[in-house]
């Protein structure tokens, strides 16, 4: 913007994004606006989905630092590639796909020796009910540890379905296989996780 800005423009430009009390806009609207270069609309998308993407990346990589980097890369790539996104409402699926691919690539490039990140996992806030909170924390930690021992592709399938509630079709497309193969992988993942959490033999 040049120095000679007509009165009122600045104010309107900064209120272009919804402030407090403004309506919550749907994904398609935000994507259409972001594609036109509306940074505020894009920021709303980031606010809406950064937590989910971060949590997926955290549980995939077991590293906070990697999860942060991946989340940032996913959204910056999304901004760059918005013009290519055909279906505006499909942005969530696109974010999940990019995040999953990044996680899998990162895990492939890691040394085979499984080194757990020191600053990883847990440090969970206790819930309102301390007893129940502690139980949940213990369960979650055991599960996270068991997850770390699954092959990355299986871990991805399990997380996307059981924690993020993505559909079989979407997951199949995402990991380049069939919905039936996804069901199979999911069943195997469940068995292995259950076994690791409570050995039955």
């Amino acid at each position: 913007m040049s120095g000679a800005v007509p009165a009122g423009l600045d104010q309107a430009a900064t209120t272009g994004g919804p402030g407090p009390g403004a309506p919550v806009l749907d994904d398609a609207t935000l994507v259409a606006r972001a594609r036109d270069g509306d940074i505020r609309a894009f920021e709303q998308l980031v606010r809406r989905y950064q937590r989910r993407i971060y949590q997926l990346a955290l549980r995939m990589t077991a590293s906070r630092a990697d999860a942060e980097d991946i989340t940032q890369e996913v959204f910056v790539t999304a901004w760059r590639r918005l013009p290519e996104l055909r279906e505006d409402a499909a942005v969530v699926g696109w974010l999940y796909r990019t995040a999953t691919n990044r996680c899998l690539n990162l895990l492939r490039s890691r040394k085979p020796v499984a080194e757990m990140d020191e600053a990883t996992v847990a440090a969970d806030r206790p819930a309102d009910d301390p007893q129940r909170g502690a139980e949940n924390t213990a369960r979650r930690e055991a599960l996270v540890e068991a997850l770390g021992q699954l092959p990355p592709a299986q871990r991805a399938v399990w997380l996307l379905r059981e924690v993020h509630g993505r559909s079989y079709d979407e997951i199949a497309e995402l990991v380049d296989t069939t919905p039936d193969a996804v069901r199979g992988r999911l069943a195997r993942a469940r068995v292995q996780l259950a076994e690791r959490m409570t050995p039955w033999q």
Binding site: Q50, R51, Y54, Q55, L58, R59, R64, A67, E68, T71, D124, R125, N136, T137, R139, R140, A142, L143, V144, E162, V163, M197
Partner: peptide, 13 residues
């Protein structure tokens, strides 16, 4: 445990 992970308290910084 899965339910506990769905309610994951891990927040992005």
């Amino acid at each position: 445990a899965t339910r506990a992970l769905v309610d994951d308290p891990a927040e992005p910084p």
